[in-house]
Structures are given as structure tokens and as C-alpha cells.
């Protein structure tokens, strides 16, 4: 994330926060957007005002955008290709008699 400071080191905007919302109990929080706020409390409140106006949420997380570490798209092959060949991790890989039950 070395470029980060340079790219978002903008003193004039309030810091950027990423917003994650749980739509209903039992579900994961899901990324739904971002906003600017002076502090985390303000970010939470404005996330409520901006992103749950139509009853979209039951819980909110806000995270300062510069605290997110992301994988590099250039590493995509190295990171994700090797998993593609491990088909034995999936249940459909296995050959079972047709009439076996409860499996």
C-alpha cells in the first residue's frame, strides 16, 4: 500500500470511510459504498443517513479506507489459479453408487 498515502493524502476532504451493512440479521455485513467524515462517529451516523434511508440495514460497520489492505491484481494468477486444480475439494468430484442414501 505504498502508493496509498500519495493517492489519498488529500488534506482538504474529510477522511474516506468504507461502509459495510448487514441487511438482515443472520447475514454478513456487505460493502455498500463509501463516504467522507471527520471522525468514526460521524462516519457511522452519516452511513446511516446515506445508506439506510430505505430500511436497507440492521447493523453498520465503517472502516477508514486507508486501513484496508488489498491483493494486487497482478498477483491474481499466483494467488487464485492454484486452487482451480484442486477439484477433489468439491463434493461433486466423488463417484458414488447411485442408490446410496443419506450422503
Amino acid at each position: 500500500m505504498s502508493e496509498h498515502g500519495e493517492r489519498s493524502g488529500n488534506e482538504r476532504d474529510w477522511p474516506l470511510f468504507e461502509v459495510f451493512i448487514r441487511a438482515r440479521t443472520g447475514l454478513h455485513h456487505r460493502h455498500c459504498g463509501s463516504l467522507h467524515a471527520a471522525d468514526p462517529e460521524m462516519a457511522l451516523a452519516r452511513a446511516r443517513d446515506v445508506y439506510t434511508r430505505r430500511g436497507e440495514g440492521t447493523s453498520i460497520w465503517v472502516v477508514p479506507s486507508d486501513r484496508i489492505h488489498a491483493s494486487d491484481p497482478a498477483d491474481k494468477d499466483m494467488l487464485f489459479e492454484p486452487a482451480m486444480s484442486k477439484i477433489y475439494r468439491h463434493p461433486s468430484f466423488y463417484d458414488l453408487p447411485d442408490d446410496v442414501e443419506n450422503m
Partner: peptide, 10 residues
């Protein structure tokens, strides 16, 4: 939206 921080310098 993804954070602007994820962008690499041009």
C-alpha cells in the same frame, strides 16, 4: 465503492 487507496499511481 472501492477505496481510492487501492489504485496504483498512474
Amino acid at each position: 465503492m472501492y477505496t481510492q487507496g487501492l489504485n496504483q499511481a498512474v
